[in-house]
Design a protein around this nucleic acid. Structure first.
Length: 155
DNA sequence: GCCAACGTTGGC
DNA sequence: GCCAACGTTGGC
């Protein structure tokens, strides 16, 4: 078992916000249809990993909360559901194409750490967020994680 | 709403 | 296997 991982997960605030996650307690992270993001979830995530919860297409976009991985990776059930928007006819139960984990609510940050703020911070220039703007599941270093949490809480 | 970035598809 | 066309993401 590797050291506890740190991640950043993006969600559109109007689609599934941190408030939705707080209400639900936890949720299956369905609908990721990007291979790199899939690989990270399937191969590298483990229960207990910590997650920066990022709102995209928000005003402003940024990190709004902390979540955590609460399940082992497993096949995304929506890929088999013909009625789902995420249905994938090329995926089989024998060889599922898309994987996910369940994500649990931890806390909302007292203030949003905006993308603009991250861009300006000298110690956050190496974040995947800035280099891989469109990737919706990204690795974060423990240092980056602690720094962003500290910016929000004043620690 | 616009548009740049960039991942995916499909013709050849 | 290349690459143009296309579709999506996501900042602004």
């Amino acid at each position: 078992m590797p050291a506890k991982g740190h991640w950043l997960l993006k969600s559109e605030a109007e689609d599934y916000s941190i408030d939705d996650l707080e209400r639900d307690g936890q949720t299956p992270w369905t609908g990721v249809r990007n291979y790199e993001a899939r690989n990270l979830m399937r191969d590298d995530m483990a229960p207990g990993d910590l997650v920066l919860y990022y709102h995209s297409n928000a005003k402003p976009s940024g990190v709004v909360g902390i979540a955590k991985v609460v399940s082992e990776p497993y096949p995304d059930p929506t890929q088999f559901d013909k009625k789902s928007y995420y249905f994938d006819a090329k995926s089989t139960r024998e060889a599922p194409r898309w994987w996910l984990v369940d994500v649990g609510f931890v806390k909302k940050l007292p203030k949003t750490i905006s993308l603009a703020e991250i861009r300006q911070h000298p110690d956050l220039q190496e974040m995947a967020l800035l280099k891989r703007l469109r990737l919706s599941v990204q690795p974060v270093t423990p240092r980056e994680f602690a720094l962003i949490r500290g910016l929000a809480t004043g620690a």
